[in-house]
Simulated assay, not measured.
Amino acid sequence: MTDIRKIILTGVLILGAAACGQGDKVPDNVLSKEKMSAILLDMNLADAYSYDITPMRGMPVPDSIRQLKVKEYYRQILDLHHISVKDFMSSYRYYEAHANRLKEVYDMMQAEITRQKNVAEGEERRQRYAEDPGAFFPYPKNTVISKKQDTIFPFLKRKH
Rank of each mutant, 00 (worst) to 15 (best):
I145Y: 02
Q110N: 14
K117P: 02
L68W: 04
D28K: 15
K148G: 09
Y94C: 06
D42H: 08
E124N: 11
Q76D: 11
I7H: 06
Y51G: 09
K33S: 05
F155A: 09
L9Y: 07
P27C: 10
D132P: 09
K86C: 01
K71I: 00
R101C: 00
N44Y: 09
K117Y: 07
S50H: 05
A130M: 12
I83M: 08
P55M: 14
T143V: 11
I77A: 06
K141S: 14
Y51D: 12
Q67N: 13
I113L: 12
A97S: 12
E72S: 15
R5W: 04
G11L: 07
A130I: 00
K35I: 01
D47N: 14
Q22E: 14
S91G: 08
D63K: 11
K117S: 13
P138G: 08
I152D: 15
L31W: 02
K159I: 01
E121L: 10
Y139V: 03
A38K: 08
Y129R: 11
Y139T: 00
V12N: 07
K86T: 01
D132F: 12
S37A: 14
M109R: 13
M109F: 05
T143I: 07
A38E: 09
A99K: 14
R57A: 14
I113M: 12
A99Y: 12
K69T: 09
V61A: 07
A111R: 15
A135P: 02
L40F: 03
V30I: 10
V70C: 06
K35S: 03
V30L: 03
G11E: 08
P140R: 15
R115N: 09
P27W: 08
P60F: 08
R115G: 01
R158A: 02
A111E: 10
L68R: 12
Y74S: 04
I53K: 01
M56C: 08
I77F: 07
R101V: 00
R126H: 03
R128V: 04
L68V: 00
V105M: 02
N29Q: 13
I8L: 10
P27F: 08
N118I: 00
A135H: 07
S90C: 05
